[in-house]
Amino acid sequence: MLCSRALAAVAAGISLITVAEHMSSVAGTAHCGLRGPQGSGSPNGRRLQRLVGVSGCGPNRVNDLLLLRPESDEESCSGTKDRGSNRHVVFFHGDIQNFKEEMALQPEASQWLSWSLEQVALVLGQRFPNRNIWVVKASHMYLNKFSCYQNFVESNMFGAPEHTAYNADGGAFHQLRSLLTNAMERAKLPSAGGADGLPPGFSLTLVGFSKGCVVLNQLVYELLGARADPNMAAFVRRISDVFWLDGGHPGGSRTWVTDREALRELAASGMSVHAHVTPYEVRDPMRAWVGREYGVFIQTLEELGACPSRKLHFQDEPPSIQNHFRVILEF
């Protein structure tokens, strides 16, 4: 979450030179060039494609997505075929992050172009090679700053969530599955075929950053019902890993899931849980509940036998927005 002090710091002109240089080295130069009318050149020949207005589980629940295909999705520069095309990573971004041309038009956002959705997709492509990378754009950006994931979880205009239990007719799991299925069909990727309606070898990794973690939290609250629903259980089982990256939102509580029964379902699901945080979120004295809730989240999962992996990044450095974003590079 980019709270008021963060936005003020943006306006004051905090530099991202070091981070931008790092990301430029990650971005590199495309080797295979453009591939198709909607694609663009990207590092190591990977194809970046924007999908606009993809339908979810209802006619009014649409999201834009970016897809970064593996280098060898069709055939790489070296002529080898990809063996991991049914492995997918889905990323939910934080406040102020948007498509690069949108960020360039906003004075408060233009200084953070190094963290545009396109750039983040390229970083994730380095972190997860041989996988399809999906970046889900929030359905609404209030004041061009505050990401709102209303299509996944009930939220106010600033994106603060109101978490609810599983809904067999909607909710985050239904939105995620429908959105991904429709996007895969549009991108001409395998979206069905197995006995459970999923393509053979399909696996899913979920990554939430900052405000985007509200989607992961909503999925946790829905797990009990989703795992019991025969129409959803197979999809849930294909989620292998879930990464929380410095979660935050403008609400006064429930930044991290602390409900023991919800976490019991997460521990029993078999998903690998990863939590990467920075002092910007968990050591902010003005929002002390964030650090406390993070501690409860980790401790409860450990008590329930989940063995979450965790790391406090940049712990010897002052809290900063730069390091808040840099966790995307370091996790």
Rank of each mutant, 00 (worst) to 15 (best):
L51A: 08
T80D: 13
V257H: 08
M141Q: 04
T255R: 06
S72M: 03
K211E: 10
S116F: 08
A233Q: 11
S24H: 05
G53M: 00
T181F: 06
V120H: 12
A138V: 13
F158P: 03
E302W: 14
S272I: 07
V220F: 07
V52I: 07
V327Y: 11
V290Q: 01
I328A: 03
A30T: 14
R287L: 00
V277G: 08
D196N: 00
G295I: 00
Y221A: 05
L65W: 11
S269L: 08
T18I: 03
L122E: 12
P200I: 12
T164W: 02
K81W: 05
E101D: 15
S25F: 09
H31Y: 03
V273S: 12
G270C: 05
E162Y: 09
G36N: 02
V273A: 15
V327I: 15
S272W: 03
A172R: 04
C213A: 14
D95F: 06
R292I: 05
Q218V: 08
L329V: 06
N132R: 13
A104Q: 11
L216Q: 09
G170W: 10
A192T: 11
S42E: 10
E108D: 14
A11K: 10
S116L: 13
L301I: 08
I14C: 06
P190K: 04
F325Q: 05
S147V: 00
G291Q: 02
V220N: 11
S40L: 10
S269H: 11
Q175M: 02
S210G: 12
Q126M: 01
A172P: 08
T278S: 09
S210T: 14
W134I: 14
D316R: 03
D196F: 01
T80F: 07
K211N: 14
L204T: 13
D241N: 15
M141T: 00
K188L: 13
N60G: 14
G94E: 07
A234N: 04
Y280H: 14
S24G: 04
